[in-house]
Amino acid sequence: MSLEHFIAQRQARWTELEAAVRRARRGRLRGLGADDMQRFGVLLRHASSDLAIARRDHPDTEVTEYLNALCARAHPLLYRGEPLRIGALPRFYATGLPRAFRAAWPYMLAGLALLALGFIAGWLAVDLRPDLRAALVPASLFDQMARGHIQGNVPDAPIAASFIIQNNIRVALICFAGGVLIGVPTALVLLSNGWMLGTVAAAVHIGGYDLQFWSLIVPHGVIELSDIVIAGGTGLMLGDAILRPGSLRRGDALAAAARRAVSLATGAATLLVVAGTLEAFVSPSGLPEAAKLAIGACAGALLYTWLIASGRAPARRHTLAFDGAQSAPA
């Protein structure tokens, strides 16, 4: 068949597809009705088989190139993953996030272990080397402890909150992203956070200000540190996928792990809004220390009840029926 004939016979369908692609330019076919949608699939299949014919009969012509470009633009409009729905968010927080957390428990434990390692190392460093104490812990901290508590400036709390929240979220996201460098930045963030807390806690302990200090840390710290551990755990997941890809190629293993981990990491990052709000409004406030500790304990209890208990499958009754059926005489 001549090229002219080939084009003349088919170009109506191509221009129709071209128009449909242009109408769907925003990247989706949502505007199209059911009939148009079906027509789009038909047109795309026609165009791609025309492309196959053009490749064979008219290679190295512009028509082949045109058809390739047309199909390449239309293909991702039809072939796509599930769209993100705002309506699915409550369900994600109710069941998806806790399930992802539980499924990733070894990495969560590893993240916690790194944080604890940093904490213990920091504590020991201050404890064993008094000469380094001044370098490790700022002296101003002791003044504040001696005054009872850090004087929170109430009107500034909203500004403090947004700065604290953005800083913590950035740290959490870096924990996740650092996974692509086999988790090294992630491990460093976890260790250094533990180290900072450890050095200060040890110094405060030696100074005898334990209660004041922990009442400053606990209200927001339970959620904040848990979140850093979760985000760190997701980063470790990525690093582990690169180091031990199993039967996959390393790149594919990384992509698969990142797909599993990303919702957990971003979900944990959003919880930092709660932690940051507590840190700005409750921790430096004039509430009695016992109240602050109680708030922290409640926040922690709520967090872990949710993470551990939420979204579990209901007990399966039919196993009982199956047992009964087996024991029944044949």
Partner: peptide, 11 residues
């Protein structure tokens, strides 16, 4: 060759 979904874009 498909369009990336929200998870891929987020990652």
């Amino acid at each position: 060759g498909g369009a990336p979904d929200a998870a891929a874009i987020a990652v």
